[in-house]
């Protein structure tokens, strides 16, 4: 992130109190980070162009890039108008947050597998997964909100995603599905506290009732995801929020359901924190520390939470 400061609405009392409890001594760094200008980032869409060719084209058009250290195909740029570039028009690049690329990387989908993106719109991770699958295998991109399917459809089309089917189901209904998946990404609906620096609307929407409501939905969704995963299959649970209720508590709940194990997550080039094993008056399963927290102030990115589970 650059050093340019911008004005941001005051973080409301309760939210600030919780952030202070999560970040401890790092809270001031978090707030400063939120007020800093952030760098644009994108991912090269390897379904349409090679990384080398894309970089050459971008360079020719005056767009200087710097690789995001923890990705193969992700890049930072200082050019704010990259979203209106020829490369974006062509679907050669996809504008995506640098931490938002992590869940699909942890999922590590392969060509030929059967994969579910349970909450898929707008399609950032769907298109990333399709690229990793090299358009081979079956990718079910589900979106429960019919109005949001249009954007998912738009991005799949623009990015040349051929191996997908878009479904319009409540994620909780996948428990009844006959189809069993090798890999599932549950990038769950959340309060979005980790993107507060980009979308100030998050502050306006935020309240504790919403946190609790999301937590309930997330627990139902993860239960559904576990039930339609093949034995030995991988489930990645992620959010762009910081609340332990929407993160560690959901994973703790999944471990209580049983039949799954938490796996270690190895990420290079990015500073991460362990999952919290206690919060407020609650204590979670110690294995929850295997989850990964990405804090905005550590890497100049959005905040993210990622957990990797394996069905036994």
């Amino acid at each position: 992130m650059g050093a340019k400061l911008h004005s941001m609405p005051e973080i409301p009392g309760k939210m600030k109190e919780r952030f202070e409890a999560i970040f401890g001594r790092d809270y001031d760094k978090f707030e400063e980070c939120c007020r800093n200008d952030y760098k644009k980032s994108f991912r090269v869409n390897t379904l349409k162009i090679s990384v080398e060719d894309a970089l050459e084209l971008l360079k020719g058009n005056g767009i200087i890039t710097k690789r995001i250290p923890w990705t193969k195909n992700g890049f930072f740029t200082d050019v704010k108008s990259v979203g209106n570039s020829f490369e974006n028009f062509m679907g050669y690049i996809y504008i995506q947050g640098p931490a938002s690329m992590l869940p699909a990387m942890v999922l590590d989908p392969n060509p030929g597998e059967t994969v579910l993106d349970m909450c898929a719109s707008p399609g950032s991770k769907t298109t990333q997964i399709a690229a990793m699958m090299k358009n081979k295998g079956v990718l079910v991109a589900n979106e429960s909100d019919y109005k949001r399917i249009k954007l998912l459809r738009f991005n799949n089309d623009k990015n040349g995603v051929l191996n997908s089917v878009i479904t319009n189901l409540d994620g909780r209904d996948f428990a009844k599905s006959k189809l069993r998946f090798d890999k599932i990404l549950l990038d769950a609906p959340c309060t979005g506290e980790g993107i507060v620096m980009r979308e100030w609307e998050v502050i306006k929407r935020w309240n504790m009732k919403l946190v609790i409501k999301m937590c309930r939905l997330q627990k139902d969704l993860i239960a559904s995801a576990i039930s339609c995963l093949k034995p030995g299959g991988t489930l990645v649970y992620s959010t762009c929020t910081l609340s332990p209720e929407e993160n560690e508590e959901v994973i703790d709940h999944a471990l209580k359901i049983g039949g799954i194990e938490l796996e270690d997550i190895e990420l290079k080039g990015i500073k991460t924190r362990k999952g919290l094993t206690s919060w407020d008056r609650y204590t979670y399963n110690e294995r929850v520390s295997k989850c990964v927290r990405v804090w905005p102030q550590d890497n100049g990115t959005e905040g993210f939470f990622v957990a990797k589970l394996k069905k036994v």
């Binding site: 059967t114 358009n135 081979k136 295998g137 079956v138 990718l139 079910v140 589900n142 399917i149 459809r153 799949n156 089309d157 040349g160 995603v161 051929l162 191996n163 997908s164 089917v165 878009i166 479904t167 319009n168 189901l169 209904d173 996948f174 599905s177 006959k178 189809l179």
Partner: peptide, 23 residues
């Protein structure tokens, strides 16, 4: 739509299918 044979031949796709591959 144009999609892959693997997707088109998958018999157990969930019922509420919206669309396939790309338009």
């Amino acid at each position: 739509y144009v999609t892959t044979e693997e997707v088109a031949l998958e018999e157990n796709l969930p019922g509420k299918t919206h669309s396939y591959g790309i338009v």
